[in-house]
């Protein structure tokens, strides 16, 4: 276990030196929050109420989908994972450290947004902060699991970017964080329900803000947890298959 924590501490330091990591986990989400948070709140004053949740969903989705898969695919392509394994570092530990560091980054950026939203935009704080934290943690885990799955199935970095965008863009447009999902045609409304962001927003509304939801809040949280389990299981299975293929 000591080795894992040493690895995590080193990974966090490496992340802080890596411009790409800082961009996708912090810089872009926070710039988006400070610039577009104000715009969205002025266009639709109702959005101000749940600004922390919507901007957090954007930040987590971006960090997990654009920040998690690419380094994993790069490590596979460049031979870093093999080099680690040859030096006695299990591949599962490397992936575990990547996921844990991503979790900590996303938790931190979410905390910044949570604390800044009421100060900068006079946004309403959730009525049930503990429920907010529960939904947030579930959503971060689900998003990272999807990021890991993309990292496991993408054969190259360009594929990883494409697959990430394939999930990231509809998550923004169809989940209801930019504008109410009820404004969408039915077909897009249903497509939007494939993505964790949609269920995270509903779970935040239902559990943390105690407001009305389009999907049952418990169902939304359940779907979020289900996505986390299925995506994580898929990623584990796929990484196992990659390792077996490398050995054959």
């Amino acid at each position: 276990m000591t080795a894992f924590w040493t690895s995590l501490a080193i990974q966090l330091r490496v992340d802080l030196r890596d411009r790409g990591t800082l961009l996708v986990f912090y810089l872009v989400p926070l710039v988006f929050f400070f610039v577009f948070g104000g715009v969205l709140a002025s266009l639709n004053p109702l959005m101000k109420d749940t600004l922390a949740a919507t901007m957090t969903i954007f930040a987590v989705t971006m960090g997990a989908l654009l920040g998690v898969p690419e380094p994993i695919v790069k490590m596979r392509e460049s031979g870093t994972l093999r080099a680690y394994r040859a030096n006695g570092i299990p591949g599962s530990a490397v992936i575990g450290v990547q996921a844990t560091s991503a979790f900590l980054h996303l938790l931190l950026v979410s905390a910044i947004i949570y604390l800044a939203a009421p100060i900068v935009f006079q946004a309403r704080l959730p009525q049930v902060p503990l429920a907010y934290l529960l939904v947030l943690v579930t959503f971060i885990v689900a998003s990272i699991a999807v990021g890991l799955l993309i990292g496991a199935v993408a054969p190259s970095q360009s594929w990883a970017t494409m697959l990430s965008m394939f999930v990231f863009l509809p998550s923004l447009l169809l989940s209801g964080i930019m504008f109410p999902a009820t404004m969408l045609p039915d077909v897009f409304l249903w497509i939007g329900r494939v993505f964790p962001a949609t269920h995270a927003l509903q779970a935040f509304y239902g559990f943390a803000y105690r407001s009305t939801t389009e999907i049952d809040r418990t169902l939304a949280l359940g779907v979020l947890a289900g996505i986390a389990v299925i995506a994580f299981a898929g990623a584990v299975w796929r990484f196992g298959a990659i390792r077996r293929n490398e050995k054959d």
Binding site: A3, S7, V14, P71, T80, R82, A83
Partner: peptide, 23 residues
Amino acid sequence: QLQSTSLPDSIRVGEAIRLVSAW
């Protein structure tokens, strides 16, 4: 030492040695 091998771009040499030592 593998024929084709690499480490993460941003890892420092000292960190890589500390990492392998830990494992």
